[in-house]
Design a protein around this nucleic acid. Structure first.
Lengths: 337, 337
DNA sequence: TGTTAGCACTCTGTTCTATCGAGTGCTAAT
DNA sequence: ATTAGCACTCGATAGAACAGAGTGCTAACA
């Protein structure tokens, strides 16, 4: 790929990102004041298409970037992705409007991400399934309720209230506490499954409903608490011309409603804390996302980690989005809340 | 409104609900084997339109029900809204597939509602804002974390973990505990606002960040925990012909993203526990909902109340929806989980 | 007086055609 | 290697014609 081809590919992608319309040779020359004739550009375009970086919607239309084209753009062309002063001041304004609770309130954070990027924002707490249970503690609060504390391998403490059925004595609760600890200590969260529950129920002599409660609470730590997915800005994508067809929108949203798939998508390959992970269209392996791109990054907040994603059209403003995410990481790591 | 007009209105609404297309006199006669000529029906239709129960999309189209028409249908025509055996068995199948946790897990419940009705389901815990705080308790867990317990006026206990900044002594925590109790005891949740926070910060001499933490946690009880909104089935509405236009969809979803409005909508008029509340189109006062209807009901679950709503097109299958909600209430009150 | 047949009219949606315009690929000239 | 020229392609747009479903009105009828 020679320098001129890079330049042309860059120009086409930039134009297509902002216009959403196929770019022709003539238009390109005009808009970028290139010192070549349209015919030359056409030749280069034909080459780029042959190489797989561009595609043509129909025989006699301009070119649009292919997924491979976007990939090349993201990997090898994009350089400066710092925020413009305008963007920066807008972000700061939105942050101050959101209040103090950004890092504590995923919904607020999601709203901010969506507002800034004008794409869909996704926030997940990274999966803790390999954590093991260090200790489980039952603290009676009253005759009918107690708090169950779970201390995990890394020292984090989770807790949840459970209600105690009538007629259960303190002794029974103590016995249960001992039993639960003996059986669950050291068990990884990912192994809290229904098979385990069956064996628990078989082994324990006392009140089974309490065992159930505790079991589901611990399981909840893993599934719901540890893997909650917060989303915002779904309507933003409806502004994009690629989604003016309701059927596409329906397929897209239907996939979004299946949290597991999205969590999987955000989980895979996000191990690198350093930077961010970009998935373009077909790379996600979901038919309904074939015209989308997803930018995923994992953040260290003050007290925990979160994984966040920006889902936009494949024709996404990569520079701006990446710039914002990097800025946000900087913001949090330098004490922003 | 004489008997024949009722009959005709009923027939038109039924047909329109299932077909989504304006109903003409000829079609109506054929489909319902009415012993009158189309011309007579036309006269009656013209009357019904004059009375406000029907409207015409254009001069030479059939009639569709007006909001007033739906209102009359719901209030005065609808009688039998019990589930058909097929529906019933489908519901039971879905419930058993969902597992045990229906009444504990709002998301599961929302998913069920959406699946059964094929509309949008909304679940909110009813607002507890008038509750007052009876007691606040800080339980240190370790040097850097504690649990904050809040006992509300009705005896319910809420809790949340907070992290303790370095260098804060046990004495300070005790002092804070005393201070917080003195200042917040008896305060209603709805009065936990930023003005109160300011005066707290002004009065307290110790670590302000801890005050903030507790304050936001209590506030969270009210806003997020007490008023969380769970939604499912948004894609269902995209199947309906009235939403084949992306712009309408965008407006609708944009409104749905503003939880406060929806919560307000579900809160108003849902005081009657007995039955359910139906809001038709313009009655909701939201432009983007003008072609929708909302059915709201409040449920007594084993340990708490929830308000749930079904949002569908104004052309909703009212009988089925109402029947299902009544059945579900029966199911929960007779020990279903 | 309520009901109905007949008729002219209205309005939408569809299909077909013509046309415009942006863009391409190819060839030959520079 | 670059470019001017040219024939061709294809989508989008606009207009015309037409079919179909439905209405309102009038006059006849039981």
């Amino acid at each position: 790929m020679d320098k001129r081809k890079r330049l042309i590919l860059h120009a086409i992608i930039q134009d297509y990102i902002s216009s959403a319309e196929p770019i022709g040779s003539r238009t390109l020359v005009k808009r970028h004041q290139i010192d070549l004739s349209p015919a030359t550009i056409r030749n280069e375009m034909a080459d780029l298409e042959e190489m797989g970086y561009l595609q043509q919607p129909h025989t006699s239309a301009g070119r649009i970037p292919s997924p491979k084209g976007y990939r090349y753009y993201v990997n090898s062309i994009l350089e400066d992705s710092s925020l413009t002063p305008q963007d920066l001041s807008r972000v700061e304004e939105l942050i101050s409007a959101a209040g103090i609770s950004l890092s504590k309130n995923p919904r607020q954070l999601a709203r901010l991400l969506a507002a800034v990027t004008s794409y869909i924002s996704l926030i997940a707490e990274p999966s803790d399934n390999v954590q093991d249970i260090r200790h489980i503690n039952l603290i009676p609060l009253s005759a009918t309720s107690a708090i169950c504390l779970v201390v995990l391998g890394d020292g984090t403490v989770k807790h949840h209230s459970i209600s105690i059925p009538e007629g259960v004595t303190t002794q029974e609760i103590d016995a249960l506490s001992v039993f639960i600890n003996r059986r669950l200590q050291g068990v990884q969260l990912q192994h809290i499954d229904s098979r385990l529950l069956c064996s628990l129920r078989a082994e324990f002599a006392g009140n089974l409903s309490l065992v159930d409660d505790i079991f589901y609470m611990v399981r909840h730590l893993m599934v719901a608490d540890g893997q909650e997915l917060v989303m915002d800005g779904a309507t933003n994508l409806l502004k994009e011309p690629e989604f003016k067809d309701v059927d596409k929108v329906r397929e897209l949203f239907r996939t979004l409603e299946q949290n597991e798939q999205i969590l999987k998508l955000m989980g895979s390959g996000s191990s690198r804390l350093e930077d961010l992970d970009i998935k373009i269209g077909p790379e996600m392996g979901l038919e309904s996302f074939s015209e989308c791109s997803l930018v995923v990054a994992t953040f260290n907040l003050t007290d925990r980690k979160v994984t966040l994603g920006i889902l936009g059209p494949a024709r996404m403003q990569y520079a701006k989005t990446i710039g914002f995410i990097r800025w946000l990481r900087e913001y949090f790591s330098s004490g922003g809340s």
